[in-house]
Nucleic acid binder design. Sequence first.
RNA 1: GCCGGAGUGGCGGAACUGGUAGACGCGGGGGACUUAAAAUCCCCGGCCCUUCGGGGCGUGCGGGUUCGAGUCCCGCCUCCGGCACCA
Length: 846
Amino acid sequence: MTTPPSELPERYDPAAAEARWQGIWDAEKAFHAEPVARDGEVVVIPDRPKAYVLEMLPYPSGEIHMGHVKNYTMGDVVAHHRRRTGHVVFHPMGYDAFGLPAENAAIRTGEPPAEVTARNIAAIRTQLKRLGFSIDWDVEISTADPGYYHWTQWIFLRFLEKGLVERREAAVNWCPKDQTVLANEQVVDGLCERCKAPVELRQLPQWFLRITDYAQALLDDMDLLVDWPERVLTMQRNWIGRSVGARVEFGLDDGSATIPVFTTRPDTLHGATFFLVAPEHPMVPRLIEGRPEQAEVTAYVGTAARTPLAERSSAERTKTGVFTGRHVINPVNGEPIPVWVADYVLMDYGTGAIMAVPGHDARDFQFATTFGLPIRRVIAEEGVEADAPLVEAMTDPGRLVNSDVLDGMAVEEAKATMCAWLAERDLGDATVGFRLRDWLISRQRYWGAPIPVVNCPECGVVPVPDDQLPVLLPHIDDYAPKGQSPLASATEWLHTTCPACGGAATRETDTMDTFVDSSWYFLRYTAPHLSNAPFSREITDYWLPVDQYIGGVEHAILHLLYARFFTKVLHDLGLVGTREPFARLFTQGMIHHQGAKMSKSRGNVVPPDDIINRFGADTLRLYILFMGPAADDAEWSDSGVEGQRRFLDRVWRLVMALPGDGAGERPTPDELAGDDAALALVRKAEATVDKVSQDIGERFSFHTAISAIQELVNHATRDAGDGTLDTPAGHRALHHAARTTVSLLFPFAPHIASELWERMGGGERLWEEPWPAADPAFLVADTVTIVVQVNGKLRDRIEVAPGMADDALLEMALALPKVEAALGGAEIKRKIVVPGKLVNLVVARP
RNA sequence: GCCGGAGUGGCGGAACUGGUAGACGCGGGGGACUUAAAAUCCCCGGCCCUUCGGGGCGUGCGGGUUCGAGUCCCGCCUCCGGCACCA
């Protein structure tokens, strides 16, 4: 659409109206909610029901995109609806402001990240305000503010006290381009999620949060997440990867030590013919010390360390390994089996060592075949000989063979029996393994919350005392990565005294993963300026859990798992009352354009500001929700946007052309009696109220809510145009339909709705007008359409009064000429009557 | 391979509990208004056949249950997402 909005007065002018209403809402603090924790204030907890409506906070890149528009518009519709249905609505906004992009800009331009970020936040805020969201701007936060990261550090120290923080040397994912360590979650297909450089493994001292301690709780409490999408729960389950099995101790041949393994198949222990340890296994140097194999094994370990992660973890790759010259004793039969080092064994899963059962594990089978190691059958299918040779690993169910006391048992029985057998002899026990790894939170970067500890040559790692928080980011001149944190170059900041002994010490120079910041932000909104605590228990107990959380499915694992973990720990520390942060979650689909995800590199981005400039914010809000089911991906269409603008213009014209009389309350059925068109329109309005309320309140089905409003507007416009409503009752019906339309439209298109509401004499404060409730008297129709079928095929329809007796319906149906023709004189074998719906006549098929 | 989700007109989609398939919107065709255009309004759009009354077929494919299936069951196919050398 290239034509500028007409200057004609009857045309709606979004620019003027939107600016005006945004000004009114701002001045009135229309969307501020209490309670919020403030220094020295007594808290009053409301007795009305609350609704905490939250959308995932944006990273302040400086520009919002259509995904943000969709996310925040959905949240805004829900917030408006809850507000007008009697809830105290908390609807805050903030910025996930630490992170690499601002730092990378600093490396390029030398401008401090804090300044880049402040400018970007201001730009984002302006764009969000242009969309007219009902956000409580009084509680806005930025995770990069010292007032915020003070408490991120404080929470870190609580984790430290609870033993949930660990500093350890570990093989970590290292991105050579970003010069930093990555969390497992940030490595995708062996590449850095951010810059796509191949990730390397490095042994470095790093900081971890022990999320694995909460693996089981994270699984168990999914029961509390009744309104989470199934696929998100599945993704988290896959990620946590619980498997039930056993820990089994294998003694070294010289009796000097035992090496534990984790296996999910303790039933196959008699089939273990060799033993594998990971190259990084701490026992490796001891195993080969002074042996002829030492040189070869050491070389293999070195090669494994240099092999890129993606290659090493590829299932297609041929198995490699090297014999250590040593043996361990299989505890079930005393048999010595050879110990090999193989890089398909992962040090950070299970115990870093496995028993190899080539007969019943595909990977072990391949290894045995490659290196000529024995393969033993211990399970046989029905009708297969116990010693039948295996040409591939047999992983199907069957009966145990060649397994002593287990012989003849089914797999499940054998597992249980073996676990009991091992436990009795103190050789192992039933246990559970998780795929989930501890969360690596240290980053060798500047723009993050400094890890609040001091490294003292005498005392080791010493936490910074609470009263010395926050550990502020120092000013530095050069942000370029050098393999260690740029913070190390701030010498004055770096050198400090040990809080424990007072001697010379240095500060920790690593900063925290930004996912730490965003793991608790939903709590800080309730106390954005509180200076002596991160939040107040009394107030978080009122607001939490978040009633409706909305965001992109790309956060299904990372952010949502971390935030759940944080909430559980804070709960166990007695700091919050809830075990889960987000009671209901909605994950939205992405907006595509020209067949692909919108991205700068593809050049297919449609900037929201452009659309607002051309059509107004209301049109954009309406269109983004009308595109399709909110959970699905949707394809951007310029002409689709125009369609929604046309709709708003139609609403505008409907209201502006309302007759001078007829305004007022909803007419009663009696007042409309005898005026069919007026009655039908009021019925339509009431049905629309019902439909829209359900679609917003229960179904998250915004596109059908909008179509329902469009149907009402079409109905009213049509009847208003052709004179059918040119009666006193008709005018009242028309006014009621228009008022209902505007009221229902408000959550989607708040500016034009407010403007029209005011022009209809409703005043300024539509945001707090009670949500309409349908009058049930109008929801029962005075006629219903009965479908008449013959053998299940539609033949005719009849209009009858509701509640007509079955016999009467049948009689009418049988009298229909079309039905008579379809029956063709055949005998009716069965008559089905569904009251209010249909009649189905069943005859013998010719 | 394992787990989860989805397949409906030219397009996005609707049909919520088994009961009128295609609401609403986009695009398309025709018409009114206009000097013309834009805007607006009206009409027509699943496919095939038709003597213009209507008839047949139709929701990825093949079966089944049922008076009746887009919806339920069984078996496939395709697409999307997650996990995957995790012992």
